[in-house]
């Protein structure tokens, strides 16, 4: 079975290695030996996922407004952008940026090559950001377009300018309505980030594939990666639940128990 880098020093450690190598379907001690590498993988995955989400979140706001109000110049180009990036697989987009751009001499000689385009990390970040921007632009546009007319009318009646109305009424109300859909996008992005491992990055899946390749294993690397992704998704869903409770509290169905209690006590009186 696979050799372990750090020999176990205690009798219990010896026993664990023996069980892990010979009897357990998964060589868990091997995973434990390399767990630090997996933690580095977690940081790469989180970096790429959240940086692209933050950048995409900022970029999508002006794009969605231009789309929702059918800006005469920008609407069509933005539509083409979102259509292309939502209509093609993220893997292809990442390959185009990483392997595709590198084919052109003028790009390899440009000022952008050395600091950015020659680095797998930056190529992944660019691809992920463009992809998530395209998706969030479209559903934020939908949310803006479905702002209840009453809210807009009330804002106008109070004499708000278009800009103030956008800032105070339309955007906050749209964000609230887009929030549940956005949690899906965040999880989708986390899952999509595994594509980083296909362009040499050692993200969670990258480390899993390294472990499998190094020791000729079928499952250990993948199952460890799976568990780590599940933990991350669990944390993200919990986070969004709390956020939704905070932002959408006014929409939750009211529970009757609080009102019933005094009535019950009145009956007893």
């Amino acid at each position: 079975m696979a050799t372990h880098d750090t020999p176990a020093e205690t009798p219990i450690g010896d026993w664990l290695v023996l069980v892990s190598e010979n009897y357990s379907p998964l060589d868990f001690m091997l995973v434990a030996d390399h767990f630090e590498k997996f933690l580095w993988g977690v940081t790469i995955t989180l970096e790429l996922t959240f940086l692209s989400l933050v950048l995409g979140g900022v970029l999508c706001i002006p794009l969605a407004i231009a789309r929702a109000y059918k800006h005469p110049w920008f609407n069509a180009p933005i539509w083409i952008f979102t259509y292309c990036f939502r209509g093609t697989p993220l893997l292809v987009q990442t390959y185009m940026i990483y392997y595709g751009l590198a084919q052109f001499d003028f790009i390899r000689e440009s000022a952008l090559w050395d600091p950015i385009l020659s680095k797998a990390w930056w190529c992944a970040l660019i691809a992920f950001t463009l992809n998530t921007t395209a998706y969030t632009t479209e559903f934020l546009r939908g949310a803006i377009e479905t702002t209840p007319f009453g809210e807009v009318e009330a804002a106008k009646a109070s004499g708000m300018s278009n800009w103030t109305m956008m800032r105070r009424i339309v955007l906050p109300s749209s964000f609230r309505r887009a929030l549940p859909a956005y949690s899906n996008e965040v999880i989708f992005m986390l899952h999509g980030s595994v594509i980083a491992s296909t362009i040499t990055l050692q993200d969670i899946l990258g480390v899993g594939r390294w472990l499998n390749g190094r020791y000729y294993l079928a499952y250990e690397g993948f199952i460890t990666a799976m568990i780590l992704y599940m933990i991350l998704v669990f944390a993200i869903t919990r986070g969004f639940n709390l956020w939704e409770r905070h932002w959408l509290g006014h929409l939750r169905p009211r529970t009757e128990t609080l009102e019933l209690k005094p009535k019950m006590s009145m009956l007893g009186r």
Binding site: A102, R108, W113, S118, A120, T200, G206, W210
Partner: peptide, 18 residues
């Protein structure tokens, strides 16, 4: 150490200067 799925990708990135 930079790892690739296929040897062709290794050559591609060597040629690209990565």
């Amino acid at each position: 150490l930079v790892m690739y799925a296929t040897q062709e990708e290794v050559f591609q990135d060597l040629a690209a200067g990565r």
